[in-house]
């Protein structure tokens, strides 16, 4: 009877729901997008004529495509790097014996629990000409007006909002990582004369958080690449495309310009870019020298 439980039938049965759902909602749509990227489709017509690589060519010929790629990279790295630094700093603080550390943990994590739409709308009001930021800088005699109306400020402002929103998530992951580091290591280091603070962090904490950092980097990169709601709600990709990232551009190609073939080509391209960057990260973390203390 024990053998029956180990039979392939059981394996297939237990795995079937997950396999079916993964194929139906992950691999099939992904394959369909790649297929669609070599066809013309307006989103409603029953006809989808073959287009070869035309949609890819048109994509690279779009006047704003270069700007979209630049915005995307600025957004992805502008959110990932500060998000990780802030998350790790908060985690380090929350891991101490501070009297209000539970409050700090709750306050830091709370923004992550709010939906991007609600948080985005709140930050739109904060950015308005009568909003908090204008009131604050107004005290110093500056009146920049609505921050989101200014092409040079809109993307940095959305990035700040995104970092604020995601820092709590990074903090929780790092906090879990920090709590796996044995205190004995720090005690041994102290006996060996290693001073507290930065040296201890650089020699013990940071190397032992390597796997956690790898996870946080990959997750943040993926989240940032596909960030849509915040931009949709806060700026609609404007002003003058200053906040149009690749994923927002894909949405606009499909739903505003009814050009689903080109949107699928851009999606396929995004898939490739994410795969390359994730692969590079994987390689970087896998080949990094072992720095264990």
């Amino acid at each position: 009877m024990i053998r029956l439980h180990r039979s392939p039938l059981w394996l297939v049965l237990f795995l079937a729901p997950a396999i079916v759902l993964t194929i139906a909602f992950f691999y099939y749509p992904m394959g369909y997008i790649v297929w669609l990227s070599v066809h013309h489709w307006n989103g409603l017509s029953p006809q989808k004529p073959f287009a070869g690589m035309a949609e890819y060519r048109h994509l690279f010929q779009e006047p704003i495509f270069g700007l979209v790629l630049r915005n995307t990279l600025e957004f992805v790295f502008g959110t990932t790097i500060p998000g990780i630094v802030l998350g790790l700093s908060l985690a380090a603080l929350a891991n101490t014996r501070l009297p209000l550390r539970n409050l700090l943990r709750s306050i830091s994590f709370a923004p992550y629990l709010v939906s991007f739409v609600s948080a985005g709308l709140a930050w739109v009001w904060l950015a308005s000409s009568k909003g908090l930021f204008n009131q604050l800088v107004g005290l110093a005699g500056f009146h920049p007006g609505n921050l989101l109306n200014q092409p040079s400020l809109a993307l940095p402002y959305v990035i700040v909002m995104y970092v604020w929103k995601m820092a709590g998530y990074n903090m929780v992951i790092y906090l879990a990582g920090l709590q796996t580091i044995s205190r004995e290591l720090y005690e041994a280091a102290a006996l060996d004369g290693l001073s507290e603070g930065w040296t201890r962090f650089r020699s013990i904490t940071w190397p032992l958080l390597r796997e956690t950092t790898f996870f946080v980097v990959i997750i943040n990169l993926i989240f940032s690449f596909r960030a849509f709601s915040a931009i949709y709600v806060m700026t609609g990709g404007g002003p003058v495309h200053a906040t149009t990232t690749l994923v927002y551009y894909i949405w606009r190609l499909a739903f505003v310009h009814d050009n689903w073939g080109q949107a699928a080509a851009a999606s396929t391209l995004m898939l490739v870019v994410v795969l390359i960057i994730t692969g590079a990260m994987l390689r970087m973390f896998a080949t990094a020298p072992d720095q264990k203390a």
């Binding site: 739109v124 308005s128 000409s129 009568k130 007006g145 609505n146 989101l148 109306n149 809109a154 700026t235 609609g236 404007g238 002003p239």
Partner: peptide
């Protein structure tokens, strides 16, 4: 002056006297 980006139908600036 510009209204709120993509939401210039909102009455906020008119009602505040801006």
């Amino acid at each position: 002056t510009f209204g709120p980006l993509n939401q210039s139908y909102q009455l906020g600036d008119f009602l505040s006297g801006k």
